[in-house]
Structure formats: C-alpha cells, structure tokens
C-alpha cells in the first residue's frame, strides 16, 4: 500500500517532466523550416483564439453566477429578449476574425503546400516512398539505393518525397519535420521538407492498415551532408543488391525487425509499383 502510494506520488511529481518529454517528439521541437513555419502558424492562431474563446470562458461563469436565483440584487427582466448592439457585437467581430484568419489561412495553405519545393540554395534530394504492409520502402533513384524503415537525408538540403502505396492507403508523418500526406496505390503524391540540423526524427504511418500498424515507424536520420554522401557510397558498394526476391518480399504483409538497405535498385522501380496496383490481382503477382 505504502509502496503504491509512493510510486503514485512519484508519478504525479514526474508527470510534467514526462509531458515535456512527449512534446519534444512533436512539432514544438521543430527541426526543419516546414515544421518551424507550422509551429509559428500554430502559435499565431492560438494567440488569436484566446480572444475568440476567452470571452465565453469568462462570461459563462460570471453571468450564470451573478444572475443566480438566490441573488436578489441582480436585475430580472424576464421579457427582455433582444438588443441590436449585443446582436451586432456577436455577429460582426467573429465574422471579422474569421475573415482575418481566412486571409492567414489562404496564404499559409499556399506557402506550406506540401507540393511546394523548399527554397534552399542546396540541391534537393529526391526520395520515392512506398507505403507497404507494415513498413516503408524509400527509394533513392539517383543513387540506385533503397532502404526499408530508415530515411537518411542530408541536413540543410531540401528533400522531395514522392509517395505511393503498394497496398492500402497510408499516411506519412514526421512530426518534427513536416506534416503528412496520404500515400495511395496507383497514385503519386508529394511531400517537401528539409531538416535544418543533424538528428534522428521519428516518422510513422498514421492511417490504420492492419495488425502491424502500431509498429510501422521509421527514423529519419539527418546527417551532415558529407556524412550523407559517404553513407550513400557505402550503401552503393556494400548493401545487398535489390533482386526479384527482395521485390516479392515487399508485398508480404509483415513487419520487419530492423531496417534493411539495398543497392543496385533498377530504374523505374517506383513507377513499376505504381502500375502494379492498377492491375488485376492475378497479373500483379507477376
């Protein structure tokens, strides 16, 4: 009993600490220009919202309590039911706020459109991501390498991910770097982001797709550009070549215990997977 009480006290004491630890994994701890802009937008909107919600949160308890039945001091006008000034006050300022927020929304939706390339002087890295059950395949078409469940990128370079799915619809999210976009079979979507500093950032599928869903996580590893180049060269020489067996294994519904790397990835693998989904099941097996 005593022990339970003690551990409960510890838990309560540590809760705020644990809370901070959780938030470090999210956009509050942004590690790239897209997520940073999203977080800035978030705080701007939140500040405006204080003025939207504040009056209600203040007025409801004050008015309900002041006009309680037991308070004989308060005014009582049971037939009073309308006043133009109040009416204008509750329609016009909220409409004005929505118009203002609407302008911010329009601009931010275009500025932070996931299809929009990141304006950085360095050359972009192109990655093709394939959502699979229950893993992610990342193809680096220029380097002819591919990885499963690990996405190394050079810090400071724009990254353009093209997405499709080899199975059901999924959604790729890296909270510290960028928001999510769906990956759908037979279709291509796009997500642009960049990591400002080296580090390891958690990525995941957020769209439920079966038993292995909760384990479908991967690390985005942002490396210093020179290290990234070294890593690419090492993969090109040392990683297992991507062969027919590797291709077939992609479509097995399974989680994988540890990331896998491939070299000698053929041209057009991504396009082949996009087309594969459009075929009837019998032909898609081949």
């Amino acid at each position: 009993m005593n022990r339970a009480a003690r551990s409960l006290t510890t838990l309560v004491a540590l809760a705020p600490l644990g809370g901070c630890a959780a938030l470090k994994l999210g956009v509050m701890n942004a590690a790239g220009p897209v997520a940073q802009a999203q977080w800035d937008l978030y705080t701007t909107v939140a500040i405006v919202l204080i003025f939207v919600g504040g009056p209600v949160l203040v007025l409801v308890p004050i008015i309900a309590w002041h006009y309680r039945r037991a308070n004989t001091e308060s005014a009582f006008r049971p037939d009073w039911n309308f006043a133009w000034p109040l009416e204008l006050l509750i329609w016009i300022p909220p409409t004005a706020i929505v118009v203002g927020l609407g302008i911010v929304l329009w601009q931010s939706a275009h500025r932070l459109d996931p299809y929009r390339a990141i304006a950085l002087s360095r050359s972009p890295v192109i990655v093709q991501a394939v959502a699979l059950d229950w893993k992610w395949l990342f193809i680096y078409p220029d380097a002819h390498i591919a990885t499963i469940n690990r996405l190394p990128v050079p810090a400071g370079h724009p990254v353009r991910i093209e997405l499709t799915s080899g199975t059901v619809m999924q959604s790729l999210l890296v909270p510290q770097l960028a928001g999510q976009v769906y990956a759908m079979a037979g279709m291509r979507t796009q997500l642009n982001f960049a990591a400002s500093r080296p580090g390891v950032y958690r990525g995941e599928n957020t769209q439920y797709n079966g038993e292995g869903f909760a384990r479908q996580k991967f690390d985005v590893v942002a490396l210093p550009p020179a290290d990234y180049q070294r890593w690419v060269r090492r993969m090109q020489h040392q990683a297992r070549p991507f062969d027919a067996a590797a291709y077939a294994a992609l479509f097995e519904r399974a989680t994988i215990p540890a990331p896998v790397m491939y070299s000698a990835v053929p041209d057009g693998l991504f396009g082949r997977i996009v087309d594969r989904s459009r075929l009837p099941a019998a032909q898609a097996q081949r």
């Binding site: 802009a37 929304l105 939706a109 960028a178 928001g179």
Partner: peptide, 12 residues
C-alpha cells in the same frame, strides 16, 4: 481547419 496545421495532427 488550417490545412498546414491539419497536416501535423490529422490522424493523431
């Protein structure tokens, strides 16, 4: 309702 913010917290 802000699409860029929805990208972050959609499906979470």
């Amino acid at each position: 309702a802000f699409p860029p913010l929805d990208y972050l917290v959609h499906n979470t």
